[in-house]
Design a protein around this nucleic acid. Structure first.
Lengths: 338, 338
DNA sequence: CTGAAAGCGCTAACAA
DNA sequence: TTGTTAGCGCTTTCAG
């Protein structure tokens, strides 16, 4: 059976192709009876509209692109799945496009991808959501886009995000509640805005509890395990080592656990360790890691919903949406030693 | 500046649109001088061919789809990156489509995606590479495809794979060489063909060294951490516990490490642990995990190259390509205790 | 509520 | 080596 076209359907249903088109696109003004005739014919012929013809005629591709540069596989996968969940509902497909955010050619490359106008809209993840040049490029192409977890300037585009700062504050308060007073902090990659937000929330909690944070208990990390381990070794080898360490993500927290093991420090009896992300490694470490869960998939889903709304309705201001993080307490944290 | 079309380019270059088309598609039989004129015009107008028009006229979309159902984020990401690497060279884009391999609707869903004929070809990863119905569906749609790491029937389609059996045998021999004689084996998910291959290689090595494998040292796992931990606890609590454990993937090996920690068994002094995959968690555990590295990205790259070749040349038999695994020795394995 | 006609921007087949 | 002409299968516009 050759591929059916709209003409075949129209012929079989005894209507014009325009009417078939109306039914396929859920346009109004088609009598119920006619609709049914058409749908029958469609089913009978196993008809699927050709995306290329559709998009040539209407200038819409029903394709969205995800642009990203993020080394965390589980983050990317979660975002992809969130996007796809929403896309399926609305009959869009997803095209993925990793890129290097530090690359001088970044914007050219993006322009190159998008000016083929194969895609209707774009979803941006950190750190791309915070690069002004990328936004300018998209704006100049008049390409609709939504940003996931941008640091600031929420008004510049539709966007969705979590309150990282608030979540970090909650976690710090949890540790303080357990009696910890010397709490080490390992910052994340300086290019990722999430790190600054987390540091802010952490600082707030300490300040509110009148805990002074000596410099030796704050170190720069880069969101990878090695930097977490190095930072922890530094802190733990001082004369007044911390009784808890807050790492800005789980990978670094895993590094802290390694450091503790290598120094024969018991977790959580002598040292509490917490991370951020609730990545799969949390349940692979020993002991399992207390952390903060961001609803990544839901964020991506909402982002996609905003984007697709913007693509179907004409008028939209830039909506934004924020979601909550939650503490996940496992075995790596406990009361402070006396 | 409005989007330039092929007509604009033709006008500016003073040639017919067909000639522009020839230049764009690198067809032969265009004089050097003409080519240059055309290229200049293209650059000047910043012309990009419209994918929809192209694909409507030529019935090719320059889009490939990756179909998968695999819970391992890093595996999927590596495959995606391998595919994209090759796609970029040849100006294809990638569309991703996760699905549930046990779903009764699987084939319908695939057919639904592909019969829109938006994509030119498909890449299949395990366990989808081993599902006959999926292959039948693709065949009946005359959709070109390449399988990554199929278990058998290599002749049914183009495919790329590693010799898992051989790699597992090498690893077993390494452990035997360290003096281990009681080596526990934790199988992977029975639906993944990789598990059987790994078990076979492992068994071969033992047989060649005349080591008998008692039943208590072989357990079924499911490629997740929990099943690895449970299996290890069983083995380690017997009266003659193993001195080494070979887990069919790294997640399960991480579970083994957890089990050992919880029983206060020292790794590697009392117990060697090895995994398979060289996933990111290998360097996050304590101690870091010895394992086997599959060149996933390269596999995907080769697979894509085969697919795109098939799409450009008419005549191809089903090529196949195999790549090598390598042992990665870290801190979780060492000499057997006496 | 329905239909006829005119493209969308390209490639394929054929002519020159 | 180059150009001409017909579509590809749909949506849009406008007319009934």
């Amino acid at each position: 059976m050759a591929k059916a076209t709209i003409d075949n359907v129209a012929a079989l249903a005894g209507v014009s192709i325009k009417t078939v088109s109306r039914v396929v696109n859920n346009e109004p003004n088609v009598r119920q009876a006619t609709q049914e005739k058409v749908r029958d014919a469609i089913k009978q012929l196993n008809y699927r509209p050709s995306p290329s013809a559709r998009s040539l005629a209407s200038n819409r591709s029903f394709l969205v692109a995800m642009l990203y540069d993020n080394p965390s596989a589980h983050y990317i996968i979660d975002v992809q799945h969130g996007i796809l969940k929403e896309c399926r509902k609305r009959n869009y497909d997803l095209l993925i496009h990793p890129c290097k955010y530090q690359d001088a050619e970044l914007c050219h490359e993006i322009e190159n991808l998008l000016s083929k106008s194969r895609v209707d809209g774009v979803i941006l993840t950190p750190p791309l959501s915070d690069i002004p040049e990328v936004m300018t490029t998209l704006d100049s192409l008049k390409m609709p886009y939504v940003r996931i977890s941008p640091a600031e300037h929420h008004e510049l585009s539709a966007c969705v995000y979590c309150d990282d700062s608030r979540a970090a504050k909650d976690m710090a308060e949890y540790l303080i509640g357990l009696g910890h007073r010397r709490i080490g902090f390992i910052a994340g990659h300086p290019d990722h805005s999430s790190s600054a937000a987390r540091e802010e929330g952490f600082g707030q909690a300490l300040a509110e509890h009148k805990i002074k944070q000596p410099k030796r208990l704050v170190r720069q990390g880069f969101y990878d395990c090695d930097s977490g381990r190095e930072a922890a070794l530094h802190m733990l080898k001082t004369s007044k080592p911390p009784t808890a360490i807050f790492a800005c993500n789980d990978n670094m927290a895993a590094g802290v656990i390694q450091a503790a093991h290598s120094l024969n420090i018991d977790i959580p009896a002598q040292l509490s360790v917490v991370g951020f992300d609730d990545s799969p490694i949390c349940t692979l470490t020993w002991p399992e890691l207390s952390t903060i869960r961001q609803p990544i998939e839901e964020l991506a889903e909402k982002a996609t919903a905003l984007l697709l709304n913007e693509l179907s309705n004409k008028p939209t201001s830039h909506e934004e949406k924020s979601l909550h993080c939650s503490l996940i307490l496992r075995d790596s944290s406990g009361p402070a030693p006396e």
